[in-house]
Design a protein around this nucleic acid. Structure first.
Length: 359
DNA sequence: AAAACGGGGAG
DNA sequence: CTCCCAGTTTT
């Protein structure tokens, strides 16, 4: 099984709890006990910093104050409210989950691990976080901060990138929970990781559990957690077309699955092997919209890095030399000053920003 | 087990 | 520039 110092774990659990109660940050979702509001905050906080989330969370609770409101909202409004937060499946899943909660649980966020886990977008972390914080259940909530803090406290050398190591950390975290106090303990563990036990240059001098930290005792806190290196983003040459009709520009909605699902963009696509950028653009517009275009001038170059790929997107001012665009629900001519009504990924939003003096 | 899935902030 | 963050889903 897992080896760790049980006595040290209990001591650290209590120390962390006391430290959190005395030092917790005043975050807006900590002022409420509404399970829905907490669930929304936990979903937004996935891979996203607190400071980034706060304004989104406040706007979200105004737009969609209840599970019912979210369930009944237009998906386009949901995506617009999420615009810029990234990982858009979180927003789509959150709405689907809200609809499931209305159908299966009469609009009440479930209070059991199994029922929470059954909702789309709710994994082991979010289920544990909502159950402990909103319903005071003594279950662990293990995120990146917890991996880091516990790996240092107990000198755990397992690679945190491997799925199986989650169980190790959940077991330790579960053991450390002071009975009935998981809400504060779990948040304390994460708070310590976010403010003191940080990845680089951890502030061990004002750590409440320095006494029981094995990594600090050996001066190796910077070496933890053990994490395998991930591959660099793959470079992709992307093209996009500015097609004009009077004061209007052509935009289209991306497919419901895959990268940036459901967001709007300027038409174009990846350059294939052995193709020039202009050839790629002409091919994509022909294939997708049945028109032949002529790239006339380079309007802008936009760089954007995702976790797994890097776009260099060339945006061309184009003329349609043959055919007519078939408009639909997902392909529209939109006046420049109405573009802000649509949810764009950041890369295409950069294009919108540069459109100012165009028309 | 590995890859896909965004975006921004810190050093 | 590199690394990393209150992760989940799909392959």
């Amino acid at each position: 099984m897992i080896e760790f110092d049980r006595k040290a774990a209990r001591t650290a659990g209590l120390g962390l709890l006391a430290w959190y109660e005395a030092n917790k940050r005043d975050l807006p979702w900590r002022r409420l006990r509404d399970p829905y509001a907490i669930w929304v905050s936990e979903t937004m906080l996935q891979q996203t910093r607190v400071e980034t989330v706060i304004p989104y969370w406040e706007r979200w609770l105004t737009l969609f104050p209840t599970v019912e409101a979210l369930a009944q909202a237009l998906e386009s409004d949901v995506l617009k409210a999420w615009e810029g937060l990234g990982y858009y499946s979180r927003a789509r899943n959150l709405q689907k989950a809200a609809q499931a909660v209305c159908e299966r649980h009469a609009g009440v966020v479930p209070d059991t691990l199994d029922e929470m886990r059954a909702l789309p977008g709710v994994g082991p972390y979010t289920a544990g976080a909502v159950l402990s914080i909103a319903y005071d259940r003594d279950v662990p909530a293990v995120d990146g901060n917890v991996f880091r803090v516990l790996s240092r406290l107990f000198l755990i050398e397992e690679d945190i990138m491997k799925p199986k190591s989650r169980k190790t950390f959940e077991s330790i975290a579960a053991y450390m929970i002071p009975e009935g106090r998981a809400a504060s303990f779990n948040q304390g563990l994460m708070e310590l990781g976010a403010t003191v036990c940080i990845p680089k240059n951890p502030r061990c001098h004002n750590c409440p559990v320095q006494e029981t930290c094995m990594a600090f005792a050996e001066g190796v806190q910077e070496e933890f957690p053990v994490k395998e290196k991930k591959k660099p983003p793959r470079p992709v040459d992307m093209t996009a077309a500015l097609l004009r009709d009077g004061d209007q520009l052509l935009i289209r909605r991306r497919p419901d699955t895959g990268l940036l699902a459901g967001l709007w963009e300027f038409p174009g696509g990846e350059r294939a092997e052995g193709e020039t950028l202009e050839q790629a653009l002409v091919r994509h517009l022909q294939e997708a919209h049945g028109i032949t275009v002529q790239p006339e001038s380079l309007f802008a170059t936009v760089e954007h890095t995702f976790s797994h790929l890097h776009w260099t997107m060339r945006v061309y001012d184009c003329a349609i030399v043959e055919g007519t665009v078939r408009v639909s629900e997902d392909v529209r001519w939109v006046p420049v000053d109405k573009l802000e009504d649509y949810a764009f990924p950041v890369a295409h939003g950069k294009i919108v920003k540069q459109l100012g003096g165009l028309l």
